[in-house]
Structure formats: C-alpha cells, structure tokens
Design a protein around this nucleic acid. Structure first.
Ligand code: MN
Ligand code: MN
Ligand code: MN
Ligand code: MN
Lengths: 216, 216
DNA sequence: TAATAAATTTAGATTAGTCTAAAATATTAT
DNA sequence: ATAATATTTTAGACTAATCTAAATTTATTA
C-alpha cells in the first residue's frame, strides 16, 4: 500500500490536472504547502512506483494506476463528507478537514458498506460527484452564476471556492445546493448580480457570482 | 498533538498495566510487535513529554495526562467498533483492525457526534466498556465461565481472548453477548463444560470456558 | 556472594519525508 | 541571440521511527 503522503500527492496531482491540464512541481508544492525540492523527491519515488509519468523539468501526469488511487481517495473523501453532514449533522463548512484524515483509512470494505448505508449518494455536500465503487462518476456541466444574463435561471449545484468563509457566507444568504435562482438584474458598473431566490431578492457581488455554480 | 505511534504506545502501556500492574520494556515490545531497543527510544520521548513516568531499567507508568490520552483512544476504538457492527453490519470478528486505524482520527467533535448518533452505547461489540466524553466508565466485574459450578448461571458479557478465531467460534456456537447460560455438567477429567443455552445444550472446552466471561 | 542468565539501554545505521542553499535548466524579454 | 528571470533539480542536513549488535544493569541461582 501507499503512505498518506503518497496518497496526498496523487490526489493533488489529480485535482490540479483537472483544472490546468499540465501539472508543475511548483503547483504541487503550493497545493500541499510544501517546497519544490520536497516535491521533486516525491515525484521520483512515485515515478519509480509507476504511479506517475515524470521526466525532469517537464511536469507530470498520472498513470492509470495512479489515477485509480487518486479517484479512490476522492471517493472516500466525499463519502465521508456526506456521512458527516447527513448523519452526524455537521455543517457543510466543517467537514473538509476531518475528511482529509478519514480519506486515508484503507479498508475498501468499510467505504463500500458506508456507501450502502447512505444509499449510494451521487454528490457530496458541496455538489461534487462521488465516484462509485469502480471509480465511475459523471460530471454534470456546471457554470458560474456570473455567466447568466438577466432573466436566465438555474439550480445551485456546486461551488468553485471551497473555503469555509465562502461556504458560511452562502449558508447565511440561504444560497444552498438545490435552490432555484433567477437573475433579475446585473449591475453595469461592478457586475454584481441580483437574484430571485424563492420569494426573496438577494444581492451578490461579481466574485460570489463567479464562485457559485449552477445547472440550467 | 501526538503521532499515531505515540498514541499506540500509550494505549499499549494502559492495557498492559490493567493486567500486570507494572509495565516492562519487553512487554511493550511484544504487544506492539517491535524491538526492545525501539521501545526504549520511545519511552524517553514520552517521558520527555511527561506522558509517562520512566526511570531506566524500572519500567513505566502513565501520568494523568498519558492516561487521559490512552482512554481517549480506547473510547474512539470502541465507539468505531460499535458503529461498524451496529450500523454497517460488520461481524464482531471483523472490526478490530479497521478500528485500529479509525481510533487515530483526531477530531473530538467527530467522536462525540458519533456517540450521540448511536445513542451513547455503554459497551462495544465484545463487551468492553466505552468511556464517556469525560473518560469515565464503569467496569462490571466479569468472571470466566470456568469459575462457575454446576447449576450456576450467568449472562455472557465479554471475552478474554479477542482473536477472530475465538470470536468466530463463539458466533458459530451461538455463544453471544447477552445470552443467558447455565452450567449443567462439568467433566471431571478434562474440565470441559456443558452449558444450557436457551433450549439447547452446548459442550465447550476448558480453554473456551476460561476465555468466555459472564456476569451473574 | 560470585557466576550466569535475562532484561534493558546505548551506539550506530537505515528509511521516509522534509528543509535550505546552490546549481542546472527553461522561459521571457530585449 | 543573449541576458535576465523563473522554475526545477541536486546536494547536504535534519527529525521520527525503526533496526541489529554490543554494552550495561538487574535478577537468578548455585
Ligand atoms: Mn473536501
Ligand atoms: Mn466536498
Ligand atoms: Mn478492538
Ligand atoms: Mn472491542
């Protein structure tokens, strides 16, 4: 098996590659709060184990084996987050750090039974898809509220920023996964947006509109 | 906070001291499948942190702080075992190894909410008491079936041997926590015991009778 | 009490993961 | 194309946890 540290590197590489395509040493270092020199050392080890493709100075990609491990960790992370929110009544902004620990519990049996126990949820509390036992999951195409024009509407389905500050703000504003919203006005000057949410109007900044994701 | 390794040492010291009173370097090494030299190194570190009282060649005892940590780990271990059996349908012989990992998840909030979720169970699946949030727990006085005489009875309430071989055997024989048993006969030659369990008779060896615990 | 055996500690190495500082390579801008 | 800058890798050192082998201390037993 792999160490916690190796698992965290694989997960970081997976997440970065989803956004930027290629994955650089510095990106990994930033994402794991470590130094580039440490990353280089670990990349050599992961390449040795054939979990990544690595050529000096050229960045890395996951091998099939590496990606499988990364997705398995992400499955565990998101299932535990779902458990914490749905069964133990944690708030959606409180679960990430505990899930960072729980995701490294090895037992596959455990996570599959937990999945059964909760009825095979498809999305975690932040709207991110939960891979199934075989690592399969579908990404629904999400777009930021900021891409909508006046009178367009959608259903809140995810967040781009996972920070607890942002999550707490959304909860306070009742901008919660599953709610239907409609854009009633866009401010010409600062691009802030006024939303119709149920029977209330809510005014959000451009930045919030950029980080709040919907499906049509 | 403490490392997993430190936590495992504290837990081992706690368990050994319950049985043998004093705790020697070799006992710890045996219990953790490591070498005496490694134990000595760790004892120095734990003494430095004031979690144990240690004088060279004299064995160790836990300080109040050390005992508090040990009990906290044991609470987590036993609550997770309860969760695995009661909520995820694991068998009682399958949960120990996973609990050995889960017990090191740090969050106190998590374990207290898990405790709430399950309704504050008092005993784990093997009959061992679960310390409450403040580390308090009561030990009911258990005695081995082998101490009973003919016609005495009791309720199965714990095991002395936690090996899966023994647990699987008990389950196969339907000798399960909570069942009432009565000694109907004791074999003079090999000290094996015949039990009345509900409407059936069950024949168990001296060794099993020694490792199966009851309350009167 | 002195010799022997057992338990424990020390000395010196090893491995995983990390760091800083310096060297090498790649990128960008003139 | 060359110089300046940014990125990445290497070199060398550190900590935590472990090991084996040797030295020391304690316990046993003659
Ligand atoms: Mn998360
Ligand atoms: Mn999430
Ligand atoms: Mn156990
Ligand atoms: Mn148990």
């Amino acid at each position: 098996m792999n160490t916690f540290t190796e698992e965290n590197y694989l997960k970081a590489i997976y997440h970065i590659s989803l956004q930027s395509g290629s994955v650089s040493t510095n990106q990994i270092a930033a994402s794991l709060n470590t130094k580039a020199a440490s990353v280089t050392d670990m990349l050599k080890k992961l390449a040795e184990k054939e979990l990544i493709n690595y050529t000096k100075y050229q960045g890395v990609t996951l091998t099939t084996a590496g990606e499988k491990i990364a997705i398995c960790i992400i499955r565990k992370h998101r299932l535990w987050e779902y458990f914490l929110v749905e069964k133990l009544n944690f708030k959606w902004d409180e679960v990430h750090d505990v899930a960072e620990e729980l995701e490294h519990i090895a037992s596959k049996e455990l996570i599959d039974r937990l999945d059964d126990f909760m009825g095979h949820p498809k999305y975690d509390p932040h709207g991110d898809p939960i891979p199934d036992s075989d690592g399969q999951f579908k990404t629904h195409e999400l777009k930021p509220v900021s891409t909508l024009t006046v009178n367009e509407s959608g259903i809140i389905s995810g967040v781009r920023d996972h920070s607890s500050a942002f999550l707490q703000y959304l909860e306070r504003m009742q901008l919660i996964i599953g709610k239907k919203i409609k854009v009633t006005e866009i401010n010409n000057y600062d691009h802030s947006v006024i939303l119709q949410v149920e029977n209330k109007k809510t005014h959000i900044s451009r930045e919030v509109a950029n980080n709040l994701l919907i499906v049509l």
